[in-house]
């Protein structure tokens, strides 16, 4: 398979300002993130809130200009594109927001919202645009009558379908899905996930699937990247990461998922404390303050992401011994 997207040492720092707008420090939302997304795969990005997973998606999209590093999409460096150049690119690289209800204009009917991307990006005439909108609407499983409804008249699951339809009208190659199932009930979530998989086959899509829900990620992703405070701490095939996690953080994250019919986490969950303030990170490994295995060397060296063969990489100095 070929690389569709490659990130090389991507950094995004946000300034922390005091009351007088003087910078008092940097919030390192993304710190030296390198990974690749292959054509046709679903890459899951998981982590707790504040770990930088949404910033990753938004930086790739160009919503946030990166502080350092390079983004290579389809072989071209897209890190510092001028606005008119990036407009071309937007057709191939699309992003869905966490809350589709908020990203649809409440005063526009669904039909108009779906038509707009085509007006901006294509030279199609009105009839051809209408035809395209209809095709897409059928593909995401919405009745045609919905074109004349306003966003508040449809349910959350349907709003998500509209959000997805809006992106697919342009036939992108890479879609960044930011928390696509948060706020949905399980029975609706299941139908939406099936839709993602169907559309992926139908339109030949590649997804970056950003989520905090590990059980969903396990279901649909080919590979998964686990993030903690701006760093990728583990990266590998989904099955490998879930069945034999190497990084202590991944292990604690997995042990925190409630699993029906198995040992209850309320009986043996061991991770204590909360993530440190991202504006004031500990030295060395960022997980060491909560890590049960931490040693003196963890405070000195920030462990790099090392591949131990078979594409399963982790960033822990002690992973060899622990694994």
């Amino acid at each position: 398979m070929t690389d569709l997207l490659r990130l090389e040492g991507l950094k995004k720092y946000f300034p922390i300002l005091n009351a007088w707008k003087r910078r008092t420090g940097w919030l390192r939302a993304l710190d030296d993130v390198s990974l690749t997304v292959e054509r046709g795969e679903i890459l899951g990005v998981v982590g707790e809130s504040g770990c930088g997973k949404s910033t990753l998606g938004k930086t790739v999209m160009g919503i946030h200009p990166p502080t350092g590093g390079r983004i290579i999409f389809e072989g071209n460096d897209i890190t510092d594109l001028k606005p008119h150049e990036s407009r071309e690119l937007r057709r191939d690289l699309q992003y869905t927001y966490q809350d589709p209800g908020a990203s649809l204009d409440p005063r526009w009917k669904i039909g108009r919202s779906l038509d707009e991307p085509l007006v901006i990006h294509t030279d199609l005439n009105r009839a051809a645009r209408k035809e395209r909108v209809r095709e897409i609407l059928a593909a995401v499983g919405l009745p045609e009558g919905h074109l004349d409804l306003y966003p508040h008249e449809i349910s959350g699951g349907q709003q998500r379908r509209v959000g997805l339809a809006r992106i697919l009208t342009l036939q992108p190659s890479l879609v960044v899905l930011d928390e696509p199932t948060s706020g949905l009930d399980v029975s609706v979530q299941a139908t939406i996930l099936n839709l993602f998989l169907d559309l992926q086959k139908q339109f030949d899509l590649t997804y970056v699937f950003i989520s905090h829900d590990l059980s969903v990620v396990r279901m649909i992703c080919d590979r998964v990247a686990v993030m903690y405070l701006g760093k990728v701490v583990e990266l590998g095939e989904t099955e490998a990461v879930f069945s034999s996690p190497r990084h202590p953080y991944t292990r604690s994250l997995l042990s925190a998922i409630p699993m029906i019919g198995e040992r209850r986490i309320t009986e043996d969950f061991w991770l204590e404390g909360e993530p440190p303030d991202p504006g004031n990170l500990p030295s060395g490994c960022r997980f060491r303050t909560r890590c049960p295995l931490a040693e003196a060397q963890c405070a000195e060296v920030s462990p790099p992401l090392v591949d131990h063969g078979s594409g399963h990489a982790d960033a822990c100095l002690l992973s060899e011994r622990a694994g």
Partner: peptide
Amino acid sequence: VRLLQSLPSRDRGITGIPGS
């Protein structure tokens, strides 16, 4: 029964509840 089946699980795939 249907609600329990909607939970993501590897050996069963994804099933929702049709209708709303």
